[in-house]
């Protein structure tokens, strides 16, 4: 190892120590609890596998996460595609608008959606005054409301990820396609889209992983009817003192996310996208 490399490695030690102390160590504690609480053994994992209530919670989590991911990525792709085509000044403004929601807390955003979607909310009263519906639609306090809130929360993340990725696409390829006579739609389907696949996959992966951990949005917009895994774990930790099952679920969730990322990095296109702009 060269001297420079040794020094560089030494410089990472403080950050590494910090990670070990405040990240790795607590995770190991969680892991240990899942095997020892309330008694040593695999009881918590057996409970997790056999308890139908936990299976329902996991299923609900998937049922909410899948549409959230699909809608977010589709919507974000349209926005990101528009962003890369914009003249720089307008793009600056548009990016600013994309960033605005970042400064609004998740709680406020959930309440805003309640105002919009509730029985006497903006959407229902609008539709009623147009005579399109007789009875208010149930847009909230169900899975639909939760998905709407989560898509809204995830959009800026997905847009930025996709924007970064689409910006990297070599524009001369697009020009070549155009000059060879491809129509706009053909350019999209045969050039833009295939080249966007790594970006789309990263965005989908990111949104999926993030969605597993949603707590506030499902609690508020689901109003008890949509119980996702993060809320379930939170209840077991803070109020029922069921720490064994809670930690076993956390470990399982962490493992699932780890496997997902590992699987994704096996995909060559994705790996190059994750490693960034080494061309």
């Amino acid at each position: 190892m060269s001297n420079f490399r040794k020094w560089a490695l030494a410089l990472t030690l403080p950050a590494g120590a910090l990670m070990l102390a405040f990240y790795v160590y607590p995770i190991l504690q969680v892991l240990a609890l899942s095997f020892t609480e309330p008694e040593p053994g695999l009881g918590n994992y057996a409970e997790m596998a056999t308890n139908p209530a936990i299976r329902r919670v996991l299923w609900t989590t998937i049922e909410v996460t899948v549409p959230t991911t699909l809608l977010t990525v589709a919507g974000a792709y349209a926005v990101a595609l528009a962003l890369v085509q914009m003249p720089p000044r307008r793009r600056g403004l548009a990016l600013f608008l994309v960033l605005v929601p970042f400064w609004i807390s998740v709680l406020v955003r959930a309440f805003a959606w309640i105002t919009i979607l509730r029985r006497r909310g903006v959407v229902n009263s609008g539709l009623e005054s147009l005579g399109l519906i007789e009875e208010p639609l149930s847009l909230i306090y169900n899975q639909l409301g939760v998905v709407v809130g989560m898509v809204h929360y995830m959009m800026p993340f997905a847009i930025l990820l996709l924007y970064a990725n689409l910006s990297d696409i070599d524009r001369s390829v697009i020009r070549a396609a155009r000059s060879l006579g491809a129509r706009r739609m053909a350019v999209f389907w045969r050039v833009w889209l295939p080249l966007s696949v790594p970006g789309l996959m990263i965005a989908a992966l990111f949104v999926t992983i993030f969605s597993f951990g949603f707590l506030v949005t499902p609690a508020l917009l689901g109003a008890g009817r949509v119980l996702m895994i993060a809320e379930y774990i939170s209840v077991q930790i803070t109020s029922t003192l069921n720490w064994g099952v809670a930690t076993a679920l956390s470990v399982t969730l962490l493992t699932a996310v780890g496997l997902l990322i590992f699987a994704a990095t096996r995909h060559p296109a994705l790996r190059s996208a994750l490693e960034g702009g080494r061309k």
Partner: peptide
């Protein structure tokens, strides 16, 4: 019984 009844209730209302 809080832990047990609470969990059963959460499961029941979210079915």
């Amino acid at each position: 019984h809080d832990a047990e009844v609470q969990n059963r209730f959460l499961d029941f209302i979210s079915r």
